[in-house]
């Protein structure tokens, strides 16, 4: 998946799923590089890293180029924790929770604004044709009547 071109909501959904799976593996003690490769299998978000690429490089690349700018920091934090050998589980679970709440907020916002957008759409695309269809025959008739004089 090209993260720079995808819809933010879709990216968040994919990232959430990815972190959920990652959290599952990391929480039982698997190394991040193994967990990462396993999580990639169930997600369409990232491509499998090259065998010569270290986890540090992968995370660094994502930190600088991931499609969602507001979530680039997560890869930076992961890289930092991984580099220091600290526990990753609480961080990954926290990212997952944050993403879920963020998605819920997006969803609520979508539900709030959708009727307004739809009404604007109706106003712009359906009201003018309605007026045209109602008024045009009379105007056309009037034009023809007037043209006779």
């Amino acid at each position: 998946m090209d993260t720079s071109k995808s819809k933010p909501v879709l990216l968040k959904k994919e990232l959430l799923l990815f972190f959920d799976i990652l959290a599952l593996y990391v929480s039982v003690g698997y190394d991040l590089s193994y967990a990462w490769n396993e999580a990639i299998k169930s997600s369409e978000l990232f491509q499998r890293p090259d065998s010569h690429q270290s986890m540090n490089t992968v995370l660094q690349n994502l930190e600088s180029s991931f499609g969602l700018k507001s979530y680039r920091y997560t890869f930076g934090v992961l890289r930092h924790l991984y580099h220091r050998g600290a526990s990753l589980t609480p961080a990954v679970q926290a990212f997952s929770r944050t993403l879920r709440r963020d998605l819920e907020r997006d969803f609520e916002a979508h539900l709030r604004t959708a009727p307004t957008r739809a009404n604007l759409c109706l106003l712009f695309f359906f009201l003018p044709p309605a007026l045209v269809l109602i008024l045009f025959p009379f105007l056309e008739h009037l034009r023809q009547v007037l043209s006779q004089f």
Binding site: L10, K13, F107, H110, A118, F125, F126, P129, V132, L133
Partner: peptide, 24 residues
Amino acid sequence: FVFLFVIFWEGLGIWILRRVNRFY
């Protein structure tokens, strides 16, 4: 011309409405 334009405009409206409604 007016009738064809109305059909086109309403079709465009339906297409945009579909896109506006989508969440994912």
